[in-house]
Simulated assay, not measured.
Amino acid sequence: MGPKTEELICVLDQLVFVLQSDGDTHWSFWMHKARARLLASDFSGIAYLLSAYGGMGSLNDLILGQSYEDGVLFWKPGHVELNEKFIELRNRAEQLANAIKRSQA
């Protein structure tokens, strides 16, 4: 396993934590599944991870720190910092995955 893959696994760990801290189950499971594939040296983890990006309803559309009560949107305390961290990790994971994909081509 190369250093970029090791870094990607670390970033995915952090992404899972951030997503779970906001109560997300769908995307946190997705990141966990991609991580598990990479830990098993299964290159399909890269394609699986990258399939989360782009298009409607993708990981790129996710905004953390929101809740609804009686149909009214509320922002959780710290939502700005939470989203900044999430965007940083999301972007880094995509950059690393693309770099790994290019190196395998």
Score class of each variant (00 low, 15 high):
residue 1 M to E: 09
residue 2 G to I: 09
residue 2 G to S: 15
residue 3 P to F: 09
residue 4 K to D: 14
residue 8 L to A: 04
residue 10 C to S: 15
residue 10 C to E: 15
residue 12 L to R: 05
residue 13 D to K: 12
residue 15 L to W: 02
residue 15 L to V: 03
residue 15 L to C: 11
residue 16 V to G: 00
residue 17 F to P: 00
residue 17 F to T: 12
residue 18 V to H: 01
residue 18 V to E: 10
residue 19 L to N: 00
residue 19 L to P: 00
residue 20 Q to L: 05
residue 20 Q to M: 09
residue 22 D to R: 05
residue 22 D to V: 10
residue 23 G to H: 07
residue 24 D to H: 08
residue 24 D to W: 02
residue 24 D to L: 13
residue 25 T to S: 10
residue 26 H to E: 11
residue 26 H to S: 07
residue 27 W to A: 04
residue 31 M to Y: 07
residue 34 A to R: 00
residue 35 R to S: 03
residue 35 R to F: 01
residue 36 A to H: 06
residue 36 A to R: 08
residue 37 R to P: 00
residue 38 L to R: 03
residue 39 L to G: 11
residue 40 A to K: 12
residue 43 F to M: 07
residue 43 F to H: 03
residue 44 S to C: 03
residue 46 I to K: 00
residue 46 I to P: 00
residue 46 I to Q: 01
residue 47 A to K: 04
residue 47 A to M: 01
residue 47 A to G: 00
residue 48 Y to R: 02
residue 50 L to K: 01
residue 50 L to Y: 01
residue 51 S to Q: 07
residue 52 A to I: 00
residue 53 Y to G: 03
residue 54 G to V: 02
residue 56 M to V: 11
residue 58 S to G: 10
residue 58 S to L: 04
residue 59 L to N: 01
residue 59 L to R: 02
residue 61 D to I: 02
residue 62 L to V: 15
residue 64 L to I: 04
residue 64 L to G: 07
residue 64 L to K: 02
residue 64 L to A: 04
residue 65 G to P: 02
residue 66 Q to F: 01
residue 67 S to L: 13
residue 67 S to Q: 12
residue 67 S to T: 13
residue 70 D to S: 15
residue 70 D to N: 15
residue 71 G to S: 08
residue 73 L to I: 10
residue 74 F to K: 12
residue 74 F to T: 05
residue 75 W to N: 14
residue 75 W to K: 10
residue 75 W to E: 14
residue 77 P to G: 10
residue 77 P to Y: 07
residue 80 V to G: 02
residue 81 E to K: 13
residue 81 E to L: 11
residue 82 L to N: 07
residue 83 N to M: 06
residue 84 E to N: 14
residue 84 E to W: 03
residue 84 E to Q: 15
residue 85 K to N: 14
residue 85 K to L: 14
residue 87 I to N: 13
residue 87 I to H: 13
residue 88 E to L: 14
residue 89 L to S: 09
residue 91 N to A: 14
residue 93 A to Y: 08
residue 93 A to F: 06
residue 93 A to L: 06
residue 94 E to T: 03
residue 94 E to I: 04
residue 94 E to M: 13
residue 95 Q to W: 08
residue 96 L to P: 09
residue 97 A to M: 09
residue 97 A to I: 11
residue 99 A to M: 10
residue 102 R to L: 11
residue 102 R to E: 15
residue 103 S to H: 08
residue 105 A to W: 01
